[in-house]
């Protein structure tokens, strides 16, 4: 996200990949396990306008630190040393711009392999680089994404080239979009001064919890106790934590207040944004006795407004 803010990116919806891409690179991403049908629906075997034969019309490369289960679906596997992505992308950008560094190996990869890869990208009808948590959650973090987007821009001088993140949670893209249109920022927002301020590192969840700043927490459809670093998640046990979730989780275990809600996409309809920002309406297949989560949130909002206006009245009375 920060990388997008910094420089933008060449992107497209996944149907473009299906219809036109003849070179697919998965970098630090293991779709076979984390996005099992991505390969068949969009990127690998999917048939499209310029890819009538599907898999046969594409060259698939996997770049990762280990031989993941995705490798067996690829034509080429390039093993990279952990934490060297930024360096490798920098060298690939050099190669793309006509500068060959004086070295044999970069990040555990033979230089010639990178030269060949860049050449393949330049010649592609449409090349697509999908990158995953292996890039965004390791050394370098958003700088890695920035390097990838810059590489995508460099490639656009030669060929149609897209750089697309493999997002995890089914509607994490929706949460970024909604926050962006209502606050201007996709995450890490603070309303303490009465308007939205953005500062990752300060207002981001892990940093806030590590500094033990929040005095009450509301967790909506998330599993911080399971997903966040232990030291950060620990603080949630020490403050009143309110959890809205359809199902029992490790986080509901430590909650002071649990508010049951319908399960979006299972027991209630709703909109979610796919990783390429296409919104789709989800269906309901089960019945649940609880309301949809926006309903208790609305009740809480209205109740707080009422409490505040009553307090104002009392204060006003005292002042008089």
């Amino acid at each position: 996200m920060v990388a997008l803010q910094l420089g933008g990116a060449p992107a497209a919806t996944l149907g473009e990949v299906k219809n036109r891409a003849d070179l697919i690179i998965f970098w630090g991403s293991n779709p076979a396990e984390s996005h099992p049908r991505h390969f068949t629906r969009y990127s690998g075997t999917a048939k499209g306008r310029m890819n009538p034969n599907g898999r046969k019309d594409r060259h698939v490369v996997v770049v990762d630190i280990r031989k993941t289960p995705s490798v067996k679906y690829s034509d080429e596997f390039i093993q990279i040393k952990p934490g060297n992505d930024y360096e490798v992308f920098t060298v690939m950008r050099m190669i793309a711009n006509g500068h060959i560094p004086d070295t044999d190996m970069v990040g555990g990869i033979p230089l010639q392999t990178l030269i060949d890869l860049v050449e393949r990208c330049k010649k592609a009808r449409m090349g697509v680089l999908f990158f995953g948590q292996g890039i965004t959650e390791t050394k370098g973090k958003h700088q890695n994404s920035t390097a990838i987007y810059q590489f995508g821009k460099d490639m656009t001088k030669h060929s149609k080239f897209l750089t697309l993140p493999m997002r995890g949670h089914y509607n994490v893209v929706g949460s970024g979009n909604v926050m962006c249109w209502q606050t201007g920022y996709p995450f890490a927002v603070n309303f303490g001064k009465g308007y939205p301020r953005f500062n990752p590192g300060e207002f981001s969840v892990v940093d806030l919890l590590l500094r033990r700043e929040p005095d009450v927490a509301v967790i909506v459809a998330a599993e911080p106790i399971d997903h966040l670093p232990y030291a950060a998640a620990k603080h949630l046990e020490n403050i009143p934590t309110i959890v809205l979730d359809p199902r029992k989780t490790l986080t509901t275990k430590i909650a002071k207040v649990i508010i049951p809600v319908k399960h979006a996409g299972v027991s209630v309809e709703g909109t979610a944004y796919r990783m390429d920002h296409i919104p789709i309406k989800m269906q309901a297949v089960l019945e649940s006795p609880w309301p949809k989560d926006d309903i208790p949130l609305s009740t809480i909002i209205n109740r707080i407004k009422k409490i505040r206006s009553e307090e104002k009245k009392t204060d006003g009375g005292k002042a008089a």
């Binding site: 209502q182 201007g184 309303f191």
Partner: peptide, 30 residues
């Protein structure tokens, strides 16, 4: 909006200012 965080810092409206919802401005406003 996403790509112009620097713009949103210049200008904002607040609930204290009489609006129901706060927000940020710049050219690509909320």
């Amino acid at each position: 909006r996403l790509m112009t965080p620097e713009d949103h810092r210049y200008e904002h409206i607040t609930r204290e200012g009489g609006y129901e919802r706060s927000g940020t401005g710049g050219v690509a406003a909320t």
